[in-house]
Simulated scan of single mutants.
Amino acid sequence: MQQSWIRGAVVSMLLGSDGGSVTANAATPASSGIPLESFVSILERNRASTSDGASSWRSGEQIRLRDIGIAGDAVKARKCLGDALRVFSRGFPTVQSNTCVSVDVIADEVHVSYRVLDPRIWPRRADAELSLGLIHGICARYGVTKDAFIDLSFEHEADRAMRSLARHLGLTPRFGAETNRIILPASVLWNTRRDPNADDDVAAYGKRLDAALHELRNATPVSQRVCELILAGMDRGMVNQAAVASEMGMSERSLRRALAHEDQPFHDLLAECRRSVGLAQLVRTDRLFSEIALALGYSDQTAFSRAFSRWYGASPRELRRIGTEAVRVMT
């Protein structure tokens, strides 16, 4: 699994001199950015050093769209909130890799979710709060106030910051959820932006975003794109080669050939993703072993246990018992 990255002026804006001191990885298509793990780690340290439990969320609300690059420019040009959120979701890969941003309308609600897919990056409380704050900042441009929130959830557990954040938001978030999510009434998707001076050249920004996504796709190894789709598909059952090939618009044969060219068989990539995600589930959650096995695409719990015993020399039960710190030494 290749290193995850983040890029754009938002990095230096949020991290200041710390961002500049982190070495970019020129092997990634985001050579102008920094490793996402470093970015998240610095955010976490900054969060721990302040007494303001809502500081990360507020920082997200204050991010200027122009500072996240072409994706932000394309969002700014949209007159309707629904269009802006969908463009944000589609364009986010140009800002950050190994990340899933989704916008789903369910009955009369809109669910806007954000999750770092790379299981090696943890803890990431500050990043989650920052990112949902950014999403709320986009919504605020279209007249959505905090009292419109139906629900707010985070994948991390509650800590000392919970009360400050709850006061700032006017509601108490849920913690320990499967993803980081804002739920709003679906009716807000029709809200129009409040900035009469915003640039209306929707078509031009849309073409630039399409070009940036095309360039990124061509610069990203097929194996990396496959890993992202496997990570995004876990918990939804999409962990087989046929499903991934279909998602990439390729035949299975073409996908096998492309991966063979990179000397990265699908089976090996799937095993690597299962190993990383499974370990994270074991030591960070209390999910049943059978649920984890099913989410990872194993036929049964026995196959799951056998694989993890082979990889780590310890059973899933033992891995959960020894916890995060001991596992970090093993890996």
Rank of each mutant, 00 (worst) to 15 (best):
I135K: 10
W122A: 14
A26H: 12
F304M: 09
I34N: 08
I322D: 04
N191G: 00
V244C: 01
R306L: 13
D118G: 05
A307I: 03
L134W: 13
V105T: 12
H261Q: 14
V327G: 01
T331L: 09
R217L: 01
L36R: 07
R253Y: 10
L184Y: 09
R86G: 03
R47L: 04
A245L: 02
D73A: 12
V40L: 01
C273V: 14
D199V: 03
F304G: 00
R7P: 09
E272M: 06
R141W: 07
M330L: 15
A198V: 01
L134H: 01
G91T: 14
L43P: 07
S41Q: 10
R317W: 01
S223V: 00
D210H: 05
V244I: 14
A271K: 13
V222P: 00
R45K: 13
Q281P: 00
G137I: 06
F308D: 07
R274A: 08
E129M: 10
C100S: 15
R217A: 10
G20R: 09
A245S: 11
V40I: 14
R287F: 11
I183M: 09
S223H: 08
K207F: 14
S276Q: 15
F154L: 10
W190V: 12
S21L: 12
M13E: 15
D286E: 14
A74H: 01
I135R: 06
K76Q: 15
A260D: 11
V75F: 06
E215K: 15
S309M: 03
L15P: 01
H267Y: 14
G72D: 11
S17Y: 04
T23I: 08
C100Y: 08
R167N: 11
D147A: 08
A245Q: 00
D118Y: 08
N180V: 05
I68P: 06
R310L: 13
L216I: 07
D159F: 03
N191H: 15
R208L: 07
M248V: 07
S187M: 13
R320M: 04
I292Y: 02
L65D: 05
T179P: 00
I182Y: 10
G72A: 07
R287D: 12
H111K: 09
S32K: 13
R274F: 08
E325L: 12
T99Q: 09
E228C: 01
G19W: 10
E44R: 02
T23W: 04
S49L: 04
A9T: 08
D83F: 09
V244W: 06
T172K: 12
F266C: 04
R310A: 14
G233D: 02
E44H: 05
D73G: 07
G176N: 10
Y142S: 04
V87L: 10
G237D: 05
V101G: 05
R236K: 12
M162A: 15
Q264G: 05
R257P: 00
P93T: 04
S49N: 12
S97N: 11
S153N: 11
A314E: 05
T172W: 08
H168I: 00
A27T: 13
R90D: 14
E129N: 05
A326T: 15
A161C: 12
F39N: 11
C227G: 04
E44F: 06
S251A: 02
G20H: 13
E109I: 06
